[in-house]
Amino acid sequence: MLILSCPFCGERDESEFVCAGPARAPRMTLAAATDDAWVDYLTAPPNPKGVVRERWWHSHGCGEWLIVERDTLTHAIHATRGARHEHD
């Protein structure tokens, strides 16, 4: 079980969080997206052996959505930040 460092709450046990899978590229507006690009966006999430950017929700804590950089091989957490500050 992982320990994730929530920017609000500090180090917390994984059981307080919900993992929502790999973080996708920023959502395209439909007007700008071809069908093929949209299908890729929906169905081809990154699944690397190594560092992956993931969305986690601190559902049993502050409710913040987080972007977590996790190594799928070692479970090392390289970075955790609030998703809303992802593109600051």
Binding site: V18, R55, G82, R84
Partner: peptide, 13 residues
């Protein structure tokens, strides 16, 4: 609630 929060925080901060 989760879907709406996720959309707001991750896609439309």
């Amino acid at each position: 609630y989760r879907r709406l929060e996720e959309f707001l925080q991750c896609e439309r901060p």
